[in-house]
Design a protein around this nucleic acid. Structure first.
Lengths: 139, 139
DNA sequence: ATGACTGCAAAGACTTTGCATCTTT
DNA sequence: AAAGATGCAAAGTCTTTGCAGTCAT
């Protein structure tokens, strides 16, 4: 028998928080975000629901950035940029790998490919500026 | 003044261990691998050297798989496949994103792109078989 | 001799989990 | 009333770090 799913205010709020931002939040971010409105929210509940959402395909992991797992409510395939300095994660909606690459990998290697992740790493404009500033100290 | 770099037996062994495998090892893997030959090796030293190698471009992180960071001695761009079940990481040397994608992202978004990561997730043949077996229990 | 590297163990950071309680159905 | 969801705090993992001792130059 499959485990029943019940409504919960917290769960709804957690999902809404993730859907309401494009920052690809971490568990901690969601927790801090909801605490004002839900003072009795527990970080454990955030984690449990993130696991729940991922298992049910409502959110997707964008990977671990600077030690924290980051999540995305957009589950259709798209690419990301990750700033190595500040950890910002940004969507690149129109950057796509070649369409048939997944199929090629499946066929060529015999893997059951479920998804494909294209991620760019570097510095965002903000951090580029700050880095430049550091390299040109007050002479 | 730049910090001097000295030779160290352990460091050499750690790098050799990473270069000598294609399994994209974790710190723990390297530690277990070297323990027979270097009984006094410390896990902290493995971590410190992994950080050192990455900072000097001798190894590259392949990301965090099932809670552990995985490393790759091959630092030329190439793609990976990660098995969601057993955590195996495999190289896909001939699968490459379009050549100019990094430049496009730099130009279009103003990021200083340092590298691009193309990773496929799914099940390796081994885990596919075992999964099938589970789904067809002894009738 | 200097200072880089290491072992050891403690501390840190993030995440998971057990159990009693509260909520939904 | 039954069982899922939560709060709380403890435990679990992986990783980093301080310090004293060791080793390379």
């Amino acid at each position: 028998m499959e485990r029943a799913i019940r409504y919960s205010k917290k769960r709804e709020a957690i999902l809404a928080a993730i859907r309401g931002t494009s920052c690809h939040p971490s568990a901690e971010w969601v927790y801090q975000r909801l605490r004002p409105l839900h003072p009795d929210l527990s970080l454990g509940t955030v984690y449990r629901n993130l696991t729940f959402f991922r298992a049910h395909g409502l959110v997707q992991s964008v990977g671990v950035v600077q030690g924290q797992e980051r999540f995305d409510a957009i589950t259709v395939p798209h690419s990301h940029f990750v700033c190595n300095c500040c950890g910002t994660v940004l969507d690149l909606p129109d950057i796509r790998p070649e369409r048939d690459l997944e199929r090629t990998v499946s066929a060529q290697y015999g893997f059951a490919v479920e998804r494909c992740e294209l991620t760019f790493h570097g510095l965002c404009p903000n951090c580029t500026d700050q880095q430049n500033f550091k390299e040109e100290p007050l002479s």
